[in-house]
Design a protein around this nucleic acid. Structure first.
Ligand code: MN
Ligand code: MN
Ligand code: ZN
Ligand code: ZN
Lengths: 128, 128
DNA sequence: TTTACTAATGCAACATAATCGCGTTAATAT
DNA sequence: ATATTAACGCGATTATGTTGCATTAGTAAA
């Protein structure tokens, strides 16, 4: 029931906070200080998502990426979805501040949005 | 170089047109009239995407879905991205007419957009 | 119609991502 | 110190998608 603090959780969280971008399981496993099993990393990340500490992004490569939730929630507990950006050059996946806006046909109810833009980021455009 | 007409292509295309929604490889394989190998289905679908006959959507389940391109292109050859909707109840993935609109920070260049909304569709909401 | 060229196919192997069962370990509260 | 059970590592498993290669068959030219 109640969550326990573990070295694995601390290390994953620290990495997510430090890197300031969305990370995949294998990126975490290779960058993390301590040795953490693959299954454990997934379990930790999913628990973060359940607890609203992180959110999951699915990219066109079919992989899951996880990013720290900073200002994901509006003051009134209302979730604000934002665009994500994947750079084809450096591979970085980052959260944009751009809010996701849409209208759906009447009768439709939206519960979640996963919006990913792909292209080249600022850094990669200026350094070329 | 030049494409050839084959039974597999015709059958897959017919299915995509008829179903009026985005289909995954396994859905196609189980619904198609003739027997077509899995690898062939993927090759056919990818060739359709290359030729602008279909487009690919990656859903949160990490799977690829393919849908016929109807009005995907603007008169001036400019691609218009639209939202897609995945119903959690019936599983249907459909193309919405809602255009994808966004602004990115200066220096960023967008080449592609994959935007998926998840929730419950009209049919599933009224029938419950 | 026959022939030549090669796109397209089936099949098996491969690669990768993610999950799951299970026995063990260790965080937390009593 | 002890009990409880969340969390863990490990291996197996599932699923998705791609690739190499020998064979088949669509297309156009002879
Ligand atoms: Mn984000
Ligand atoms: Mn579409
Ligand atoms: Zn970049
Ligand atoms: Zn539905």
């Amino acid at each position: 029931m109640k969550r326990r603090n573990t070295p694995a959780k601390e290390a994953v969280l620290e990495l997510l906070v430090k890197s300031q971008k969305a990370l995949s399981q294998d990126a975490i496993e290779s960058q993390i200080e301590i040795a953490v099993n693959r299954a454990t990393i997934y379990r930790v990340l999913n628990s973060f998502c359940e607890d609203g500490i992180a959110h999951k992004i699915v990219a066109e490569d079919g992989k899951q990426y996880f990013s720290i939730c900073k200002k994901c929630k509006h003051p009134e507990e209302k979730l604000i979805y934002h665009y994500h950006f994947r750079c084809l050059s450096c591979g970085t996946i980052e959260c944009l501040k751009t809010p996701v806006q849409y209208t759906v046909p009447s009768g439709y109810q939206v519960e979640h949005a996963n919006c990913l833009l792909t292209g080249t980021c600022k850094d990669c455009n200026t350094n070329s």
